[in-house]
Design a protein around this nucleic acid. Structure first.
Lengths: 222, 222
DNA sequence: TCGCTTTCGTTAGAAGTTGTAACTCACGAC
DNA sequence: GTCGTGAGTTACAACTTCTAACGAAAGCGA
Protein backbone atom coordinates (compact mmCIF):
# COMPACT_ATOMS: atom_id res chain seq x y z
CA UNK A 1 0.00 0.00 0.00
CA UNK A 2 1.31 3.40 -0.90
CA UNK A 3 1.18 6.13 1.70
CA UNK A 4 -0.90 9.08 0.70
CA UNK A 5 -0.54 12.43 2.38
CA UNK A 6 2.76 14.11 3.18
CA UNK A 7 4.08 12.51 6.35
CA UNK A 8 7.03 14.88 6.29
CA UNK A 9 5.91 18.14 7.87
CA UNK A 10 3.54 17.04 10.58
CA UNK A 11 2.99 18.09 14.13
CA UNK A 12 2.86 15.26 16.69
CA UNK A 13 -0.89 15.78 16.97
CA UNK A 14 -1.40 15.43 13.25
CA UNK A 15 0.77 12.33 13.22
CA UNK A 16 -1.22 10.75 16.04
CA UNK A 17 -4.48 11.70 14.39
CA UNK A 18 -3.42 10.06 11.13
CA UNK A 19 -2.37 6.91 12.98
CA UNK A 20 -5.69 6.57 14.77
CA UNK A 21 -7.55 7.28 11.55
CA UNK A 22 -5.64 4.47 9.87
CA UNK A 23 -6.35 2.11 12.73
CA UNK A 24 -10.06 2.87 12.54
CA UNK A 25 -10.05 2.12 8.84
CA UNK A 26 -8.12 -1.09 9.44
CA UNK A 27 -10.74 -2.34 11.85
CA UNK A 28 -13.47 -1.17 9.48
CA UNK A 29 -12.00 -3.28 6.68
CA UNK A 30 -11.78 -6.33 8.90
CA UNK A 31 -15.33 -5.89 10.05
CA UNK A 32 -16.58 -5.32 6.52
CA UNK A 33 -14.83 -8.39 5.18
CA UNK A 34 -16.82 -10.66 7.47
CA UNK A 35 -20.20 -8.91 7.51
CA UNK A 36 -20.37 -6.60 4.51
CA UNK A 37 -20.52 -2.85 4.22
CA UNK A 38 -24.07 -2.54 5.51
CA UNK A 39 -23.13 -4.17 8.81
CA UNK A 40 -20.35 -1.69 9.55
CA UNK A 41 -20.77 -0.47 13.13
CA UNK A 42 -18.90 2.50 14.58
CA UNK A 43 -19.63 1.29 18.08
CA UNK A 44 -18.13 -2.12 17.40
CA UNK A 45 -15.01 -0.53 15.94
CA UNK A 46 -14.66 1.72 18.95
CA UNK A 47 -15.08 -1.22 21.32
CA UNK A 48 -12.41 -3.18 19.45
CA UNK A 49 -10.04 -0.25 19.85
CA UNK A 50 -10.83 0.16 23.53
CA UNK A 51 -12.52 3.50 23.06
CA UNK A 52 -16.00 4.78 23.59
CA UNK A 53 -18.35 5.12 20.64
CA UNK A 54 -18.55 8.91 20.26
CA UNK A 55 -14.75 9.16 20.26
CA UNK A 56 -14.72 8.12 16.62
CA UNK A 57 -16.60 11.27 15.67
CA UNK A 58 -13.40 13.21 16.28
CA UNK A 59 -11.99 11.39 13.26
CA UNK A 60 -14.97 10.88 10.96
CA UNK A 61 -18.09 13.00 10.75
CA UNK A 62 -20.21 9.85 10.67
CA UNK A 63 -20.70 6.42 9.25
CA UNK A 64 -21.20 7.75 5.74
CA UNK A 65 -17.96 9.69 5.77
CA UNK A 66 -16.06 6.64 6.97
CA UNK A 67 -17.53 4.54 4.18
CA UNK A 68 -16.76 7.27 1.67
CA UNK A 69 -13.17 7.24 2.87
CA UNK A 70 -13.04 3.46 2.50
CA UNK A 71 -14.38 3.77 -1.05
CA UNK A 72 -11.71 6.34 -1.79
CA UNK A 73 -9.02 4.03 -0.42
CA UNK A 74 -10.41 1.15 -2.48
CA UNK A 75 -10.19 3.21 -5.66
CA UNK A 76 -6.66 4.27 -4.78
CA UNK A 77 -5.68 0.68 -4.05
CA UNK A 78 -7.01 -0.45 -7.42
CA UNK A 79 -5.19 2.38 -9.16
CA UNK A 80 -1.97 1.40 -7.37
CA UNK A 81 -2.44 -2.21 -8.39
CA UNK A 82 -3.02 -1.24 -12.00
CA UNK A 83 -0.02 1.07 -11.96
CA UNK A 84 2.24 -1.58 -10.49
CA UNK A 85 1.00 -4.10 -13.03
CA UNK A 86 1.43 -1.85 -16.03
CA UNK A 87 5.05 -1.28 -15.02
CA UNK A 88 5.80 -4.97 -15.50
CA UNK A 89 5.39 -4.86 -19.27
CA UNK A 90 7.73 -6.08 -21.97
CA UNK A 91 7.49 -9.72 -21.00
CA UNK A 92 5.79 -10.46 -24.28
CA UNK A 93 2.42 -10.68 -22.60
CA UNK A 94 -0.04 -8.02 -23.79
CA UNK A 95 -0.69 -5.17 -21.41
CA UNK A 96 -4.40 -5.98 -21.30
CA UNK A 97 -3.65 -9.47 -19.99
CA UNK A 98 -1.47 -8.27 -17.12
CA UNK A 99 -4.11 -5.66 -16.27
CA UNK A 100 -6.78 -8.35 -16.28
CA UNK A 101 -4.84 -10.64 -13.98
CA UNK A 102 -4.06 -7.75 -11.69
CA UNK A 103 -7.75 -6.90 -11.53
CA UNK A 104 -8.71 -10.47 -10.74
CA UNK A 105 -6.07 -10.79 -8.04
CA UNK A 106 -7.15 -7.51 -6.50
CA UNK A 107 -10.81 -8.57 -6.51
CA UNK A 108 -10.20 -12.02 -5.01
CA UNK A 109 -7.94 -10.59 -2.31
CA UNK A 110 -10.89 -8.73 -0.78
CA UNK A 111 -14.29 -9.26 -2.40
CA UNK A 112 -16.02 -6.68 -0.22
CA UNK A 113 -13.50 -4.08 -1.35
CA UNK A 114 -14.33 -4.92 -4.96
CA UNK A 115 -18.05 -4.59 -4.25
CA UNK A 116 -17.44 -1.27 -2.56
CA UNK A 117 -16.18 0.04 -5.90
CA UNK A 118 -18.29 -1.85 -8.40
CA UNK A 119 -21.15 -3.34 -6.38
CA UNK A 120 -24.67 -2.25 -5.59
CA UNK A 121 -24.79 1.51 -5.17
CA UNK A 122 -26.68 3.27 -2.42
CA UNK A 123 -29.45 5.36 -4.00
CA UNK A 124 -28.82 9.01 -3.45
CA UNK A 125 -25.10 8.61 -2.83
CA UNK A 126 -22.91 10.80 -4.99
CA UNK A 127 -19.21 10.09 -5.24
CA UNK A 128 -16.90 13.03 -4.50
CA UNK A 129 -15.09 14.55 -7.43
CA UNK A 130 -11.66 13.21 -6.54
CA UNK A 131 -12.98 9.67 -6.84
CA UNK A 132 -13.95 10.23 -10.45
CA UNK A 133 -10.46 11.60 -10.99
CA UNK A 134 -8.91 8.35 -9.73
CA UNK A 135 -11.40 6.35 -11.80
CA UNK A 136 -10.24 8.25 -14.85
CA UNK A 137 -6.63 7.30 -13.99
CA UNK A 138 -7.63 3.67 -14.26
CA UNK A 139 -9.30 4.41 -17.57
CA UNK A 140 -6.05 5.90 -18.87
CA UNK A 141 -4.17 2.67 -18.15
CA UNK A 142 -6.90 0.56 -19.69
CA UNK A 143 -6.97 2.72 -22.81
CA UNK A 144 -3.18 2.60 -23.09
CA UNK A 145 -3.27 -1.18 -22.98
CA UNK A 146 -6.03 -1.27 -25.58
CA UNK A 147 -4.29 1.17 -27.89
CA UNK A 148 -1.23 -1.04 -28.23
CA UNK A 149 -3.31 -3.83 -29.76
CA UNK A 150 -3.97 -3.98 -33.51
CA UNK A 151 -7.08 -2.09 -34.52
CA UNK A 152 -7.90 -3.27 -38.00
CA UNK A 153 -11.19 -4.29 -39.52
CA UNK A 154 -14.28 -2.24 -40.32
CA UNK A 155 -15.71 0.19 -37.81
CA UNK A 156 -19.00 -0.95 -36.33
CA UNK A 157 -21.92 1.38 -35.71
CA UNK A 158 -21.28 1.40 -31.97
CA UNK A 159 -17.65 2.29 -32.54
CA UNK A 160 -18.83 5.20 -34.63
CA UNK A 161 -21.12 6.18 -31.76
CA UNK A 162 -18.26 6.39 -29.24
CA UNK A 163 -15.67 7.87 -31.58
CA UNK A 164 -13.71 10.64 -29.97
CA UNK A 165 -15.00 10.00 -26.45
CA UNK A 166 -11.56 8.88 -25.25
CA UNK A 167 -10.63 12.49 -24.49
CA UNK A 168 -13.61 12.71 -22.16
CA UNK A 169 -12.96 9.42 -20.38
CA UNK A 170 -9.29 9.89 -19.76
CA UNK A 171 -8.36 13.55 -19.96
CA UNK A 172 -7.39 14.11 -23.56
CA UNK A 173 -6.63 10.51 -24.45
CA UNK A 174 -6.90 10.17 -28.22
CA UNK A 175 -7.56 6.49 -28.91
CA UNK A 176 -9.09 5.01 -32.06
CA UNK A 177 -12.71 3.93 -31.68
CA UNK A 178 -11.75 0.25 -31.86
CA UNK A 179 -9.59 0.72 -28.77
CA UNK A 180 -12.43 2.50 -26.97
CA UNK A 181 -14.76 -0.36 -27.79
CA UNK A 182 -12.19 -2.87 -26.57
CA UNK A 183 -11.69 -0.99 -23.32
CA UNK A 184 -15.43 -0.95 -22.69
CA UNK A 185 -15.66 -4.68 -23.40
CA UNK A 186 -12.65 -5.31 -21.14
CA UNK A 187 -14.32 -3.47 -18.31
CA UNK A 188 -17.85 -4.82 -18.64
CA UNK A 189 -17.01 -8.43 -19.48
CA UNK A 190 -14.42 -8.97 -16.78
CA UNK A 191 -16.65 -7.22 -14.27
CA UNK A 192 -19.47 -9.51 -15.32
CA UNK A 193 -17.45 -12.65 -14.62
CA UNK A 194 -15.83 -11.31 -11.45
CA UNK A 195 -18.94 -9.95 -9.80
CA UNK A 196 -20.96 -13.11 -10.42
CA UNK A 197 -18.06 -15.24 -9.18
CA UNK A 198 -17.54 -13.18 -6.02
CA UNK A 199 -21.28 -13.18 -5.36
CA UNK A 200 -21.19 -16.96 -5.43
CA UNK A 201 -23.49 -17.37 -8.41
CA UNK A 202 -21.15 -19.96 -9.93
CA UNK A 203 -21.18 -22.13 -6.81
CA UNK A 204 -22.11 -25.68 -7.54
CA UNK A 205 -21.98 -25.21 -11.29
CA UNK A 206 -18.95 -27.44 -11.57
CA UNK A 207 -16.50 -25.29 -13.50
CA UNK A 208 -13.48 -23.21 -12.57
CA UNK A 209 -14.30 -19.46 -12.64
CA UNK A 210 -10.63 -18.75 -13.34
CA UNK A 211 -10.93 -20.62 -16.62
CA UNK A 212 -14.05 -18.69 -17.60
CA UNK A 213 -12.21 -15.48 -16.80
CA UNK A 214 -9.29 -16.63 -18.93
CA UNK A 215 -11.62 -17.58 -21.79
CA UNK A 216 -13.26 -14.15 -21.72
CA UNK A 217 -9.84 -12.53 -21.68
CA UNK A 218 -8.84 -14.62 -24.69
CA UNK A 219 -11.89 -13.40 -26.57
CA UNK A 220 -10.92 -9.85 -25.67
CA UNK A 221 -7.43 -10.27 -27.12
CA UNK A 222 -8.65 -11.85 -30.35
CA UNK B 1 -47.34 -10.79 -12.28
CA UNK B 2 -48.48 -14.35 -11.82
CA UNK B 3 -50.21 -15.32 -8.58
CA UNK B 4 -48.38 -17.95 -6.63
CA UNK B 5 -50.08 -20.01 -3.99
CA UNK B 6 -53.51 -21.56 -4.34
CA UNK B 7 -56.06 -18.84 -3.59
CA UNK B 8 -58.87 -21.36 -4.07
CA UNK B 9 -59.28 -23.16 -0.77
CA UNK B 10 -58.58 -20.52 1.84
CA UNK B 11 -60.20 -19.62 5.09
CA UNK B 12 -61.03 -15.91 5.52
CA UNK B 13 -58.18 -15.63 7.97
CA UNK B 14 -55.67 -17.06 5.52
CA UNK B 15 -56.99 -14.76 2.81
CA UNK B 16 -56.62 -11.71 5.05
CA UNK B 17 -53.17 -12.84 6.09
CA UNK B 18 -52.07 -13.18 2.47
CA UNK B 19 -53.47 -9.75 1.64
CA UNK B 20 -51.60 -8.05 4.48
CA UNK B 21 -48.44 -9.95 3.59
CA UNK B 22 -48.71 -8.66 0.02
CA UNK B 23 -49.28 -5.12 1.22
CA UNK B 24 -46.22 -5.30 3.44
CA UNK B 25 -44.13 -6.45 0.51
CA UNK B 26 -45.58 -3.71 -1.69
CA UNK B 27 -44.48 -1.04 0.78
CA UNK B 28 -41.13 -2.78 1.15
CA UNK B 29 -40.52 -2.57 -2.59
CA UNK B 30 -41.43 1.11 -2.66
CA UNK B 31 -39.17 1.86 0.26
CA UNK B 32 -36.34 -0.17 -1.25
CA UNK B 33 -36.61 1.56 -4.61
CA UNK B 34 -35.84 4.94 -3.06
CA UNK B 35 -33.33 3.98 -0.37
CA UNK B 36 -31.92 0.55 -1.24
CA UNK B 37 -32.20 -2.78 0.48
CA UNK B 38 -29.99 -1.87 3.41
CA UNK B 39 -32.29 0.98 4.39
CA UNK B 40 -35.39 -1.22 4.63
CA UNK B 41 -37.12 -0.46 7.94
CA UNK B 42 -39.90 -2.60 9.40
CA UNK B 43 -40.98 0.27 11.60
CA UNK B 44 -41.35 2.64 8.67
CA UNK B 45 -43.40 0.07 6.77
CA UNK B 46 -45.66 -0.45 9.78
CA UNK B 47 -46.11 3.28 10.19
CA UNK B 48 -47.03 3.64 6.53
CA UNK B 49 -49.66 0.94 6.98
CA UNK B 50 -51.01 2.52 10.14
CA UNK B 51 -49.86 -0.32 12.36
CA UNK B 52 -47.46 -0.62 15.22
CA UNK B 53 -43.99 -1.98 14.61
CA UNK B 54 -44.19 -5.38 16.29
CA UNK B 55 -47.38 -6.20 14.37
CA UNK B 56 -45.29 -7.07 11.33
CA UNK B 57 -43.68 -9.94 13.22
CA UNK B 58 -46.96 -11.82 12.88
CA UNK B 59 -46.23 -11.95 9.15
CA UNK B 60 -42.46 -12.17 8.89
CA UNK B 61 -40.08 -13.60 11.44
CA UNK B 62 -37.81 -10.60 10.97
CA UNK B 63 -36.13 -8.27 8.56
CA UNK B 64 -34.06 -11.06 7.06
CA UNK B 65 -37.05 -13.22 6.30
CA UNK B 66 -38.83 -10.31 4.64
CA UNK B 67 -35.80 -9.64 2.44
CA UNK B 68 -35.52 -13.33 1.64
CA UNK B 69 -39.14 -13.27 0.54
CA UNK B 70 -38.47 -10.22 -1.63
CA UNK B 71 -35.51 -12.00 -3.21
CA UNK B 72 -37.72 -14.99 -3.89
CA UNK B 73 -40.32 -12.74 -5.54
CA UNK B 74 -37.64 -11.07 -7.61
CA UNK B 75 -36.41 -14.42 -8.91
CA UNK B 76 -39.97 -15.44 -9.68
CA UNK B 77 -40.62 -12.16 -11.46
CA UNK B 78 -37.52 -12.63 -13.62
CA UNK B 79 -38.53 -16.20 -14.42
CA UNK B 80 -42.01 -15.00 -15.40
CA UNK B 81 -40.51 -12.30 -17.60
CA UNK B 82 -38.23 -14.81 -19.31
CA UNK B 83 -41.10 -17.25 -19.78
CA UNK B 84 -43.35 -14.59 -21.27
CA UNK B 85 -40.55 -13.46 -23.57
CA UNK B 86 -39.63 -16.94 -24.78
CA UNK B 87 -43.26 -17.50 -25.76
CA UNK B 88 -43.04 -14.69 -28.30
CA UNK B 89 -40.68 -16.55 -30.60
CA UNK B 90 -40.97 -17.22 -34.30
CA UNK B 91 -40.75 -13.55 -35.28
CA UNK B 92 -37.47 -14.24 -37.01
CA UNK B 93 -35.53 -12.68 -34.13
CA UNK B 94 -33.26 -15.17 -32.34
CA UNK B 95 -34.46 -16.37 -28.96
CA UNK B 96 -31.33 -15.05 -27.29
CA UNK B 97 -32.12 -11.53 -28.49
CA UNK B 98 -35.65 -11.50 -27.09
CA UNK B 99 -34.34 -12.91 -23.82
CA UNK B 100 -31.70 -10.21 -23.70
CA UNK B 101 -34.18 -7.42 -24.29
CA UNK B 102 -36.53 -8.91 -21.72
CA UNK B 103 -33.68 -8.98 -19.22
CA UNK B 104 -32.77 -5.37 -19.90
CA UNK B 105 -36.35 -4.20 -19.62
CA UNK B 106 -36.79 -6.09 -16.37
CA UNK B 107 -33.60 -4.63 -14.93
CA UNK B 108 -34.37 -1.03 -15.91
CA UNK B 109 -37.92 -1.29 -14.56
CA UNK B 110 -36.61 -1.69 -11.02
CA UNK B 111 -32.83 -1.49 -10.55
CA UNK B 112 -32.97 -2.37 -6.86
CA UNK B 113 -34.85 -5.55 -7.72
CA UNK B 114 -32.08 -6.44 -10.17
CA UNK B 115 -29.45 -5.79 -7.53
CA UNK B 116 -31.37 -7.92 -5.07
CA UNK B 117 -30.83 -10.87 -7.40
CA UNK B 118 -27.43 -10.13 -8.91
CA UNK B 119 -25.93 -7.45 -6.71
CA UNK B 120 -23.61 -7.43 -3.75
CA UNK B 121 -24.33 -10.43 -1.56
CA UNK B 122 -24.52 -10.30 2.22
CA UNK B 123 -21.68 -12.45 3.61
CA UNK B 124 -23.06 -15.42 5.44
CA UNK B 125 -26.41 -15.33 3.68
CA UNK B 126 -27.40 -18.61 2.05
CA UNK B 127 -30.22 -18.71 -0.44
CA UNK B 128 -32.98 -21.24 0.27
CA UNK B 129 -33.12 -24.27 -1.98
CA UNK B 130 -36.24 -23.23 -3.86
CA UNK B 131 -34.45 -20.13 -5.09
CA UNK B 132 -31.78 -22.19 -6.78
CA UNK B 133 -34.60 -24.18 -8.37
CA UNK B 134 -36.06 -21.01 -9.91
CA UNK B 135 -32.58 -19.92 -10.97
CA UNK B 136 -32.19 -23.21 -12.77
CA UNK B 137 -35.50 -22.54 -14.58
CA UNK B 138 -33.95 -19.40 -16.01
CA UNK B 139 -30.90 -21.40 -17.03
CA UNK B 140 -33.12 -23.81 -18.94
CA UNK B 141 -34.57 -21.00 -21.03
CA UNK B 142 -31.13 -19.49 -21.65
CA UNK B 143 -29.73 -22.85 -22.71
CA UNK B 144 -32.71 -23.48 -25.00
CA UNK B 145 -32.12 -20.16 -26.70
CA UNK B 146 -28.41 -20.91 -27.06
CA UNK B 147 -28.98 -24.41 -28.39
CA UNK B 148 -30.98 -23.14 -31.37
CA UNK B 149 -28.00 -21.17 -32.63
CA UNK B 150 -25.41 -22.77 -34.93
CA UNK B 151 -22.59 -24.43 -33.02
CA UNK B 152 -19.85 -24.97 -35.54
CA UNK B 153 -16.15 -24.34 -35.31
CA UNK B 154 -13.47 -26.00 -33.20
CA UNK B 155 -14.02 -26.66 -29.51
CA UNK B 156 -11.92 -24.42 -27.27
CA UNK B 157 -10.20 -25.67 -24.15
CA UNK B 158 -12.74 -23.96 -21.90
CA UNK B 159 -15.59 -25.57 -23.81
CA UNK B 160 -13.95 -28.92 -23.20
CA UNK B 161 -13.74 -27.98 -19.53
CA UNK B 162 -17.52 -27.39 -19.24
CA UNK B 163 -18.60 -30.22 -21.53
CA UNK B 164 -21.56 -32.11 -20.12
CA UNK B 165 -22.28 -29.63 -17.33
CA UNK B 166 -25.60 -28.65 -18.89
CA UNK B 167 -27.32 -31.51 -17.12
CA UNK B 168 -26.17 -30.11 -13.81
CA UNK B 169 -27.13 -26.51 -14.53
CA UNK B 170 -30.61 -27.19 -15.89
CA UNK B 171 -31.79 -30.57 -14.72
CA UNK B 172 -30.78 -32.95 -17.45
CA UNK B 173 -30.34 -30.40 -20.22
CA UNK B 174 -28.03 -31.90 -22.84
CA UNK B 175 -26.54 -28.97 -24.73
CA UNK B 176 -23.35 -29.00 -26.79
CA UNK B 177 -20.38 -27.30 -25.11
CA UNK B 178 -20.52 -24.39 -27.53
CA UNK B 179 -24.04 -23.64 -26.36
CA UNK B 180 -22.94 -23.84 -22.72
CA UNK B 181 -20.12 -21.43 -23.44
CA UNK B 182 -22.52 -19.08 -25.19
CA UNK B 183 -24.99 -19.20 -22.31
CA UNK B 184 -22.24 -18.33 -19.85
CA UNK B 185 -21.10 -15.44 -22.03
CA UNK B 186 -24.70 -14.26 -22.40
CA UNK B 187 -25.13 -14.21 -18.66
CA UNK B 188 -21.82 -12.66 -17.65
CA UNK B 189 -21.50 -10.08 -20.43
CA UNK B 190 -25.02 -8.72 -20.25
CA UNK B 191 -24.80 -8.65 -16.47
CA UNK B 192 -21.53 -6.76 -16.79
CA UNK B 193 -23.10 -4.03 -18.92
CA UNK B 194 -26.36 -3.89 -16.97
CA UNK B 195 -24.88 -3.78 -13.49
CA UNK B 196 -22.39 -1.05 -14.37
CA UNK B 197 -25.12 0.94 -16.12
CA UNK B 198 -27.58 0.63 -13.22
CA UNK B 199 -24.85 1.52 -10.76
CA UNK B 200 -24.29 4.74 -12.69
CA UNK B 201 -20.71 3.99 -13.72
CA UNK B 202 -21.42 5.12 -17.27
CA UNK B 203 -22.75 8.50 -16.18
CA UNK B 204 -21.03 11.33 -17.90
CA UNK B 205 -19.18 9.08 -20.33
CA UNK B 206 -21.21 10.40 -23.23
CA UNK B 207 -22.50 7.23 -24.83
CA UNK B 208 -25.83 5.42 -24.81
CA UNK B 209 -25.71 2.30 -22.59
CA UNK B 210 -28.49 0.77 -24.68
CA UNK B 211 -26.18 0.83 -27.70
CA UNK B 212 -23.36 -0.84 -25.74
CA UNK B 213 -25.82 -3.48 -24.62
CA UNK B 214 -26.92 -4.00 -28.22
CA UNK B 215 -23.30 -4.20 -29.38
CA UNK B 216 -22.51 -6.87 -26.79
CA UNK B 217 -25.63 -8.77 -27.80
CA UNK B 218 -24.51 -8.57 -31.44
CA UNK B 219 -21.15 -10.07 -30.48
CA UNK B 220 -22.99 -12.84 -28.67
CA UNK B 221 -25.04 -13.72 -31.75
CA UNK B 222 -22.05 -13.74 -34.11
C1' DT C 1 9.66 25.75 33.46
C1' DC C 2 4.99 27.71 33.52
C1' DG C 3 0.65 28.58 31.62
C1' DC C 4 -2.60 28.74 27.81
C1' DT C 5 -5.01 26.58 24.25
C1' DT C 6 -6.33 23.04 21.52
C1' DT C 7 -7.90 18.62 21.04
C1' DC C 8 -8.95 14.21 22.66
C1' DG C 9 -11.90 10.93 25.16
C1' DT C 10 -15.27 10.53 28.33
C1' DT C 11 -20.30 10.18 30.07
C1' DA C 12 -25.18 11.45 29.39
C1' DG C 13 -28.81 11.49 26.49
C1' DA C 14 -31.99 11.91 22.31
C1' DA C 15 -33.99 9.48 18.57
C1' DG C 16 -33.97 5.72 15.85
C1' DT C 17 -33.75 0.61 14.85
C1' DT C 18 -34.89 -4.74 15.55
C1' DG C 19 -37.04 -7.92 18.21
C1' DT C 20 -39.53 -10.18 22.60
C1' DA C 21 -43.13 -10.54 26.05
C1' DA C 22 -47.53 -10.05 27.72
C1' DC C 23 -52.01 -8.44 27.33
C1' DT C 24 -56.67 -7.24 24.72
C1' DC C 25 -59.90 -7.97 21.73
C1' DA C 26 -62.27 -9.53 17.76
C1' DC C 27 -63.11 -12.85 14.34
C1' DG C 28 -64.43 -17.39 12.92
C1' DA C 29 -65.40 -22.32 13.87
C1' DC C 30 -68.37 -25.34 16.06
C1' DG D 1 -73.78 -18.50 21.90
C1' DT D 2 -69.33 -20.05 23.55
C1' DC D 3 -64.72 -20.56 23.01
C1' DG D 4 -60.12 -20.86 20.98
C1' DT D 5 -57.03 -18.94 17.76
C1' DG D 6 -54.72 -15.25 16.02
C1' DA D 7 -54.14 -10.15 15.17
C1' DG D 8 -52.74 -5.85 17.11
C1' DT D 9 -51.57 -3.35 20.98
C1' DT D 10 -48.24 -1.35 24.58
C1' DA D 11 -44.02 -1.98 27.33
C1' DC D 12 -39.53 -3.03 27.29
C1' DA D 13 -34.63 -4.61 26.32
C1' DA D 14 -30.69 -4.05 23.56
C1' DC D 15 -28.78 -2.17 19.97
C1' DT D 16 -27.52 1.62 16.59
C1' DT D 17 -25.94 6.61 15.06
C1' DC D 18 -25.02 10.96 16.57
C1' DT D 19 -25.08 15.55 19.71
C1' DA D 20 -23.84 18.00 23.82
C1' DA D 21 -21.23 19.08 27.65
C1' DC D 22 -17.55 18.11 30.55
C1' DG D 23 -12.66 16.75 32.27
C1' DA D 24 -8.11 15.75 31.36
C1' DA D 25 -4.00 15.49 28.84
C1' DA D 26 -0.95 16.88 25.55
C1' DG D 27 1.56 20.29 22.72
C1' DC D 28 3.05 25.22 21.97
C1' DG D 29 4.73 29.71 23.09
C1' DA D 30 6.92 32.61 26.46
Amino acid sequence: MADHGDTGTQTPRERYRAQVQEEIKKHAWEQMAVAGASALSLNAIAKQMGMSGPALYRYFAGRDELITELIRDAYRSLADTFRAASETVGTGEPGLAVLAHALRGWALADPQRYFLVYGTPVPGYHAPDDITVIASENMVMMLDACAELPSDGPVTSFEAHIEGLGSRWADGHAAPPVALRRALAFWTRLHGVLSLELAGHFNGMGFDPALLFAAELDDLLR
